[in-house]
């Protein structure tokens, strides 16, 4: 019987959000096709992750638990996934679109000569194949893609799918040996500088974002405060990043991050087409801008024409009151 493989990524023994979403999407597709969901769990000390994969609905778990997998290196991870695919011949391999997930997808597709569809925002089954829909051309167009004859490798965009729910299921994982020995790996991880604080933009459910209208680095303070009250992340336009007011990792847009939060509050952002490319799939968009003609208002669901420095403190207070 063929399976839908799900590459399950974990961090500190926990399945990352985009992999839970991928397990959720895989379950729906597999049920429609009458196939199993098989989770692929790689890492070092990942027995708990395998158990969690069963809990989140995997029918089977295949994995490799080894010291060479302690730090993510595609050179170590890729060949194991390729081998599991070659030994088990799944119909599809679904992977959450994280930095590591994208590397694995590209590696396995190249080595197995499989078709690869990236950044899917919805999946459907048609004639026993998976149809993946994704935005293309800076999110100005949509594309429905299918892979007619080979293994179907698909990466799933962050926050586009509902996460799997815990089922209470348990099972026995099947573990294999690593494919490449440490001595044969040509990359060594020699250091790691953890990012201090702050929530990942692509995983955030709420983003408060600032543009040139904040006026300077200190103008991000009310943005940060509102984000903190809402337990959200801080975004930025390129203009503010280029000006050096905030680091690049906060940039949203065509040459920054693509985000789809439930709520995106754009403050002092004009809404250039390149900025829109990164945030137009947000569920609800709020724009705060002094200029009633700013293009961001044509995209927003709710608009406020005012000075952001007047509105943000009032908003922070109003939310604080409601959220207690």
């Amino acid at each position: 019987m063929s399976d839908i493989f799900v590459y399950v990524e974990s961090q500190n023994g926990k399945i990352v959000p985009v992999s839970l979403e991928t397990l959720g999407a895989a379950r729906i597709v597999a049920d429609e096709l009458g196939e199993d969901v098989t989770a692929v769990v790689l890492g070092s000390d990942v027995t708990a992750v395998a158990e969690a994969a069963f809990d989140y609905g995997a029918d089977n778990v295949l994995g490799c638990d080894d010291e060479t997998l302690k730090e993510f290196r595609v050179e170590a991870y890729g060949p194991i996934v390729t081998q599991l695919v070659e030994d088990n011949d799944p119909s599809a391999l679904l992977i959450g679109s994280s930095t590591a997930g994208r590397d694995v997808a590209a590696w396995v597709a190249a080595d197995t000569e499989a078709g690869l569809m990236t950044e899917a925002v919805s999946l459907a089954v048609e004639d026993d194949r998976i149809k993946a829909t994704r935005p293309v051309y800076a999110a100005k167009l949509l594309c429905d893609a299918v892979i007619p004859d080979s293994l179907q490798i698909i990466t799933l965009r962050n926050r586009a799918f509902a996460p799997a729910e815990a089922t209470g299921n348990t099972g026995d994982a099947e573990w294999i040996d690593p494919v490449v020995d440490e001595d044969d790996l040509t990359t060594k991880v020699t250091g790691f500088k953890a990012k201090e604080g702050g929530m990942s933009l692509t995983e955030a459910t709420i983003i408060v974002s600032g543009g040139r209208g904040v006026g300077g680095p200190e103008g991000f303070e009310p943005i940060r405060q509102l984000a903190a009250v809402l337990n959200g992340a801080v975004g930025a336009s390129r203009a503010t990043v280029d000006a050096g007011w905030i680091p690049y990792e906060h940039q949203v847009g065509q040459t920054g991050k693509t985000v789809s939060p439930d709520l995106y509050i754009a403050c002092g952002i004009s809404g250039a087409i390149q900025h829109q490319a990164g945030m137009r799939t947000a569920k609800i968009i709020v724009a705060i801008n002094k200029d009633a003609e700013a293009p961001i208002f044509s995209l927003a669901h709710y608009g406020i024409v005012a000075d952001l420095f007047d509105i943000l403190p009032a908003l922070e207070e109003a939310f604080q009151e409601r959220l207690g």
């Binding site: 078709g115 293309v136 995209l299 669901h301 709710y302």
Partner: peptide, 28 residues
């Protein structure tokens, strides 16, 4: 290996922006 012949414009968003107004920042 991928057939992506089905490309189409993103369906226009329904409805337009709702402007929030009020007498002062707090009310807004």
């Amino acid at each position: 290996k991928v057939d992506w012949s089905s490309v189409y414009a993103i369906p226009a968003r329904e409805g337009s922006v709702e402007m929030i107004t009020g007498d002062d920042a707090q009310e807004i």
